[in-house]
Nucleic acid binder design. Sequence first.
DNA 1: GTCTATAAATGGATAGAC
DNA 2: GTCTATCCATTTATAGAC
Lengths: 200, 200
Amino acid sequence: MSSEPAPDRRRRDAAATRQAILDAAVTAFTRHGYDGVGVRDIAHNAGVTAMLINRYFGSKEHLFAEAVDVAFAPRTVITGTGTELAGQTARTLVARTAPEAEELGPFLLMLRSAANPRAAEIMRDAIARHAGRHLSEELSGAGAGMRAELMLAVQAGLWLMRRVLGTTALAEAPPEDLARYVTMLFQVLDMPAKDATPRG
Amino acid sequence: MSSEPAPDRRRRDAAATRQAILDAAVTAFTRHGYDGVGVRDIAHNAGVTAMLINRYFGSKEHLFAEAVDVAFAPRTVITGTGTELAGQTARTLVARTAPEAEELGPFLLMLRSAANPRAAEIMRDAIARHAGRHLSEELSGAGAGMRAELMLAVQAGLWLMRRVLGTTALAEAPPEDLARYVTMLFQVLDMPAKDATPRG
DNA sequence: GTCTATAAATGGATAGAC
DNA sequence: GTCTATCCATTTATAGAC
């Protein structure tokens, strides 16, 4: 006789709730950094209460670790391979770090959470597991690991200046000029160590 | 008869107290970032109580602004001029960002405070007033402002990876190899725009 | 010029009801 | 499976005594 109560959105669905929290966490940590966001904010954006974060993830720190893993897993850093690696990656990077771009991404999460020592450890491990490995595969020759992390450093620096701080010269620079220089930077880092000679 | 009380260290000396607070603030903000440090910590390190920070600086934010100005004022980013700019700056940078180095500096302050939006604004303005100007003076030719900020980006990226996160490949890389690549990066950015052609 | 004491808000995490 | 209510620590900033 009595009809079943209309099932609310995501009600009584542990997996969906967990996923909603995780999605909200990635966004919030990317926008405001580890210390800049509270579990209440994340829970609210996920449509649940703060308590469930501890229920499903144990603590804010564990939630952050999972969020970092999700954010760093996709192969977004490098586009293109071989001779087109430098130019294509540079153009993608310049477009994504444009002041008016709304795109989020692992570099923003990284920069905005780096101040917290625990968060820094978690991200260092995630880089070793994901981004560092991806990049090292693309590169070859002597010093590939070092050059891969130098590419990450260049990218992080550009994200910092253009999107986090918003300095004027980089904001106003013509994208094609900027892309030209960034391409040259990546070309330098694409050279194996034995071929590289400064000021030839 | 009653002898004067022995004058305590810094007691009743407004200028010295103010300076002690400012010094402690630079150190603390560099080590832990804007959100990672409380006014109590700073006051304690300065040998006073937290109340005096508001008395002398008005608020934590104003104290931060003055600390940033102090930290960014010295011309530490670039060493050497002309043809030796790239190599000398690279070697200094590699030495300062060595994992075992204890040196603090404006880049650590910048990276660890970037997550806070107000702090980011304050630092963007300070860069325009100090570091950006210094660098633009050293450089010449087309796109000097853009290339100067790209140099800052490269430096910030290396500080982030080596000193803040401590990623393995950059930590273990031989300093001379690392300096060689960083030198080449700076050489690229030392070229005026019209001379620069990727993959010549 | 500097202190103690406290206000007022916010943080992460938990207990227990339903 | 999810909620409300609460604990406890910590934050910036201020009031008022000395």
